[in-house]
Design a protein around this nucleic acid. Structure first.
Lengths: 166, 166
DNA sequence: CAATAATATGCATTCGGAATGCAGTTTAAA
DNA sequence: TTTAAACTGCATTCCGAATGCATATTATTG
C-alpha cells in the first residue's frame, strides 16, 4: 500500500515553493530537482501536471521557473493527492471492466474498503500547505545545504572536442 | 493506491470459508481457486500464510483442505490486512534506509500521511467476517454457479500413454 | 504397505506499471 | 539572434508483484 512517486514529488514540489516565503520568486525545475536530489526529467512531468491543475504558475523562457499560483492555505493535500494518483482501485473489484470476482454484487468487503479509502483521504483533506510551514526555516536551511552539496550546474561540462563535421 | 492481490486473495479466501456455514467442512485450495476463477498456484501461497497466521487450519493428505480456525466474529479485516500487505510505506521517506529526501527530519507531510494510513486501517479494524455474512445465501449461490460453470476437474485429463520406462 | 490426493516449498519466469532517459519543440528574456 | 527555460512525445529500463513449474511432504484410503 503506497502512493506513486509521482504524487510524492507533486507534494514535495508545492512544499518547496511554499517554503520560500517570497511568493514572487521563481524556482526552476532544475533547482527543485537538485534540492531534493531527484531526476530533473521526472520532475518536469510533475511540474506540467501542477500547472494544468492551476496550482502553480510556470514562467517559460530565460529566467523562468515555477511559483505557487495560490496561497499555501489554499492548497489542500487531499485535493492534490486525489488528482495526482493514477487511480484508487484498492482491490480488483474496484475496476468493474476487469473484475472477475463472481460474488462482487453480494460482497460487503468492497463497502468496507471504500470507507477505509475515504477515511484515508479525509485525513489529508484536513491539511493545507500552510500547516507545514511551522518548520519553514529548518526546511529552507536543509534545502540550501542540499543545493550547496550538489554540483551547481552539472548540465553540460563538455565544451570541447565537438564533432562539428558529420 | 491499492492493496496487493495477495491481500485481496487472503480476504477472499477467509470469506469463502466463512460463507459455508458448516465450520467443519473442508474446502480445498483447488475448490476455492475454481470458485473465484483465480490461479490455484497463487492461492496456495495465500493459504500457507493464512495457516501460519493461525486463522485457517490446513488438513493435509487425501480429502484434506482448509477451514477457518476461528469463528467469523474473531477474524478482523484490519488485522488481516496488516499481516498480508508486504509494507505500508506510503512515500519514500517511510523507509529510512532508502530515503533521500533532505528535509525528512523537518517535514510535516509524513505525520499527515501516517495519520491517513492509520485512519484507513482503523476503518478496517471495525469489521470482522461476521459482518459480511448477511448476504451469505447470495454469495453461496454465486459460488455454486461459478463452480458449476468451471470444468469440475481439469487437473489431469491425460490418463494414457504414460512413460513408464525411463 | 502401496497408491493417491492434498498441502508445503523453492525457484525461475513473466508481466505491467512506474520510473527514467533521450531528443526535440516552443517560448520568452537578454 | 542567442540562450535558458518550460513543454512534449517516445523509447527504454527497472522492480515488485504475479505466475507457473517441479518437487517434497503428509495423511488418508483400500
Amino acid at each position: 500500500m503506497h502512493l506513486t512517486q509521482f504524487s510524492d514529488y507533486a507534494m514535495r514540489t508545492v512544499l518547496y515553493l511554499a517554503s520560500r516565503g517570497d511568493g514572487d520568486r521563481l524556482a526552476s525545475v532544475e533547482e527543485i530537482s537538485r534540492a531534493y536530489r531527484i531526476s530533473r526529467h521526472h520532475l518536469v512531468r510533475v511540474a506540467q501536471t501542477l500547472t494544468e491543475l492551476g496550482i502553480v504558475t510556470a514562467q517559460r523562457g530565460r529566467g523562468g521557473g515555477l511559483k505557487l499560483a495560490k496561497a499555501p492555505s489554499e492548497v489542500n493535500v487531499g485535493w492534490l493527492v486525489r488528482r495526482t494518483e493514477p487511480n484508487f482501485h484498492i482491490v480488483e473489484c474496484f475496476r468493474p471492466e476487469t473484475n472477475t470476482c463472481p460474488i462482487a454484487s453480494a460482497c460487503g468487503l468492497k463497502g468496507a474498503l471504500i470507507r477505509a479509502r475515504e477515511a484515508f483521504l479525509a485525513v489529508l483533506d484536513e491539511y493545507t500547505l500552510e500547516q507545514f510551514l511551522t518548520t519553514r526555516s529548518e526546511m529552507v536551511a536543509l534545502f540550501d545545504a542540499a543545493l550547496k552539496a550538489e554540483p551547481p550546474t552539472p548540465t553540460e561540462p563538455e565544451a570541447e572536442s565537438k564533432p562539428e563535421a558529420d
